[in-house]
Amino acid sequence: MISQYQLRKTWIVFLLMLAGCSGAISEPDKSIRHAIEGAYAADISSDNKIAVVSTAQQGILVWDLVAQTEKFKWSHEEEGHVVNTVGIVHIAADSSYVVTADREAFALWNLSTGEPEGFWRIDEASVRDIAVSNNGRGILVGRGNGKAMFFEPTSGRRLEFLGHQEKINSVDISPNGFYALTGGNDYVAYLWDTRSGQVIHRFTHSSRVTKVALDDAGRYAFTADSKRGAKIWDVQTGEEISQLSFIQRQKIFSAATFSEDGKYLATGSPGRALNLWSVTTGNEVQEWRVTPKDGTQPQSAVVYAVSFEQKNQLLSESSSGLAEYWAFEQEN
Score class of each variant (00 low, 15 high):
Leu191Gly: 04
Gly177Ile: 04
Ile173Asp: 09
Ser196Ala: 11
Pro175Tyr: 12
Thr210Arg: 14
Thr204Ser: 15
Val209Glu: 05
Phe203Tyr: 15
Ala180Arg: 05
Thr194Phe: 04
Asn169Phe: 15
Thr194Glu: 02
Lys211Pro: 05
Ala180Asp: 01
Gly177Met: 05
Ile173His: 08
Val209Trp: 04
Ser170Asn: 11
Gly183Asn: 06
Arg202His: 06
Phe203Glu: 01
Asn176Ser: 07
Leu181Arg: 07
Tyr179Gly: 00
Asn169Trp: 14
Phe178Lys: 14
Asp193Tyr: 00
Tyr187His: 14
Asp186Gln: 01
Phe178Ala: 13
His205Cys: 07
Val171Gln: 13
Ser174Glu: 07
Phe178Asn: 13
Asn176Arg: 06
His201Met: 03
Phe203Met: 14
Val199Phe: 03
Thr194Trp: 02
Pro175Val: 10
Ser196Met: 07
Phe178Trp: 06
Ile200Trp: 02
Gly177Asn: 09
Gly177Leu: 09
Tyr179Ser: 10
Arg202Trp: 00
Thr194Val: 00
Asn169Asp: 11
Ile200Val: 13
Asn169Gln: 15
Asn176Val: 02
His201Lys: 12
Gly183Ala: 14
Ala180Thr: 01
Tyr179Pro: 00
Val209Gln: 04
Leu191Phe: 09
Val188Tyr: 01
Ser174Phe: 06
Ser206Thr: 14
Gly183His: 13
His201Tyr: 04
Ala180Pro: 00
Thr194Pro: 00
Ile200Ser: 06
Asp172Asn: 14
Leu181Thr: 07
Asn169Thr: 05
Tyr190Ser: 08
Asp193Trp: 04
Ser196Ile: 10
Thr182Lys: 04
Arg195Ser: 12
Ser170Ala: 15
Tyr187Trp: 07
Ser206His: 08
Val171Asn: 10
Gly177Ala: 09
Ser170Val: 07
Ser206Pro: 04
Val209Gly: 09
Asp186Pro: 04
Ser207Ala: 15
Thr210Asp: 05
Ala180Trp: 01
Asn185Ala: 12
Leu191His: 08
Asp186Phe: 04
Val199Pro: 06
Ser207Trp: 12
Asn169Glu: 11
His205Lys: 02
Gln198Tyr: 11
Ser206Ile: 15
Thr194Ser: 13
Gly183Gln: 12
Leu191Lys: 03
Pro175Lys: 10
Leu181Asp: 01
Ala189Gln: 04
Phe203Thr: 08
Val188Phe: 00
Phe203Asn: 02
Trp192Asn: 08
Arg195Pro: 00
Thr204Asp: 14
Trp192Leu: 02
Ser196Asn: 07
Phe178Leu: 11
